[in-house]
Simulated scan of single mutants.
Amino acid sequence: MERSGRTLRETVLESPPVLALLNHSFISSWSLVRELEHMQTDEQNLVLGQKAQMHLEKYNFPVEMIVALPNGTIVHHINANSFLDETAMKPEEEDAAFSFSAGFEDPSTSTYMAFLKEALQRAEEFMQ
């Protein structure tokens, strides 16, 4: 089965539990690499440039899912291809990096929920 960004939008990002968590605990946005590169060199806004640089340092083609604090600190990230590769594994595979027992029908939804929850836990460590 071929997985894509469209598949993620039609499964993970349409899941009521995922949407509830995103709406409650996150501000969701996206940036193009070109925009981040431009921000990084903006001498009028050095703080924004530093935040853009932090994100570019974690970026891997084609899409990087990043959770960051308002100051730009990245608390968790995963490349979309890695995410899709991990969630394409069958649940019964012994070496699967993620657990699919969270009660969701789609493994990618379960995995994305785990990603978001881990990001929240990591963020709490920075806030203490």
Rank of each mutant, 00 (worst) to 15 (best):
L8Y: 05
E94P: 13
L46C: 04
E37V: 05
T73F: 09
E43G: 00
M39D: 08
L8R: 10
Q53W: 09
G103H: 09
E10V: 06
W30M: 06
S29C: 15
P70H: 13
E86H: 09
E43F: 05
M89T: 04
D85Y: 05
E94Q: 15
Q40E: 07
E10M: 14
H55V: 08
T111N: 02
L46W: 01
I78F: 07
G49L: 03
S82R: 13
K117Q: 15
N45H: 12
A96C: 12
M54Y: 06
V67K: 06
R34N: 04
M1I: 09
G103A: 05
P62Q: 00
S4Q: 01
T109R: 07
F83D: 00
L22M: 12
M54K: 11
M113H: 07
T109N: 04
D42Q: 05
E125N: 11
M113Q: 09
H24W: 13
V63E: 00
F98C: 02
T87M: 06
L36D: 01
P70Q: 14
P17E: 03
E125H: 14
V47N: 02
M1Q: 09
Q128I: 15
S108I: 03
R6K: 14
E93P: 05
L46S: 02
T111R: 03
E2A: 13
S99Q: 12
E118I: 08
D95W: 13
E92A: 09
S101F: 08
R122W: 10
A123E: 06
H76W: 05
E64M: 06
T109P: 06
D85R: 06
M39H: 11
V75R: 10
S101T: 02
E124V: 09
R3Q: 02
I27F: 15
K51S: 08
D95L: 14
T111Q: 00
A97C: 01
R34W: 02
A114T: 11
A52V: 05
E86A: 07
M113L: 14
D95P: 08
A80P: 02
G72V: 05
V63N: 00
A20M: 09
F26R: 14
L8F: 11
M39W: 08
G72W: 06
G103R: 03
S28H: 04
V18G: 08
A123H: 14
S110T: 03
A52F: 01
S31Y: 13
F126A: 10
I78L: 10
L69S: 12
L36M: 05
S99G: 10
L8A: 02
G103Q: 06
H77D: 01
M54W: 04
M39S: 07
H55E: 04
L120G: 06
Q121Y: 10
N79M: 00
V67F: 07
P17G: 03
M65W: 07
S108Q: 11
Q40G: 00
N71Y: 10
L56N: 01
E2Y: 10
L13M: 08
E125S: 15
E14L: 15
N79S: 03
E86W: 07
L46P: 01
L120F: 12
V63R: 00
Q40N: 00
S108N: 10
K51R: 11
E92W: 11
L56A: 02
N71V: 06
P17D: 06
S25Y: 12
H38P: 00
Q53T: 08
P70C: 11
